[in-house]
Design a protein around this nucleic acid. Structure first.
Length: 202
DNA sequence: ATTCCGATTGCCT
DNA sequence: GGCAATCGGAATG
């Protein structure tokens, strides 16, 4: 896959209102280039917005802590945290400095280097069709497949290690729903997904 | 120091 | 549908 760096999203993209960024992220291409220069890429098909204010489910609701510090930076970096003793979740930090907002990447359609993503997920490149659909269809699965962990916390999304490209200009339909796996602020409609995608978390 | 529990996943019935 | 795995974060004492 050739990467068109001219399509890399500018820093200003991330500094917009968080709900707006969440919507616009659907259909975009997230790229990771690892230490061995191998390229992984996927289309973002599902995200969730988390904001400091009026959102009790957000890590930042209680203010800045050691864990959520990245959320308070200016939009355009990654916030990665460890959860349930064994998984990682990756977020796109949004909005202005000192506002603790971010967008969780919940699911991605793998589009390049499925072999490496399979190895990262299952330890082998030959997998069943069902496993192919399950490669990156959840926040923990996406991080595992793309090799994202807390060493990527604070990574600059305008760098060449992890970044996001504008997708095709095709018209897409975006669905909206309540968020998944939370117990507070359940009523907020802040999950956004690509309608019809086979790679959603549910 | 202790306690509770989580922005998940995979396996089980 | 239920639930165990597994451990660090945050609140509390």
């Amino acid at each position: 896959m050739e990467i068109d760096f001219s399509k890399k999203l500018p820093i200003s993209f991330y500094q917009q209102d968080t709900i707006s960024v969440a919507n616009q992220l659907i259909g975009k291409i997230i790229v990771k280039i690892d230490e061995k220069n191998s390229i992984l890429a996927g289309k973002i098909v599902e995200v969730e917005a988390y904001t400091q204010y009026k959102d009790e489910a957000s890590h930042s609701f209680v203010g800045m802590t050691k864990r959520n510090k990245a959320m308070f930076e200016i939009g355009g970096i990654l916030y990665v945290y460890f959860i349930y003793g064994m998984y990682f979740c990756a977020n796109i930090v949004t909005n202005k400095k000192d506002i603790g907002d971010a967008v969780l990447i919940r699911a991605v359609e793998p589009i390049f280097n499925l072999e490496q993503i399979s190895i990262n997920r299952y330890g082998r490149k030959d997998i069943t069709n069902k496993q192919k659909l399950n490669l990156t269809n959840g926040p923990g699965k996406f991080c595992a497949g793309f090799g994202i962990n807390t060493t990527h916390n604070f990574v600059d999304l305008t760098s060449n290690s992890i970044f996001i490209l504008d997708g095709n200009e095709e018209k897409i339909e975006i669905g909206v729903s309540e968020r998944i796996g939370i117990n507070k602020s359940k009523e907020l409609q802040r999950r956004f997904y690509l309608k019809g995608s086979q790679f959603l978390s549910r």
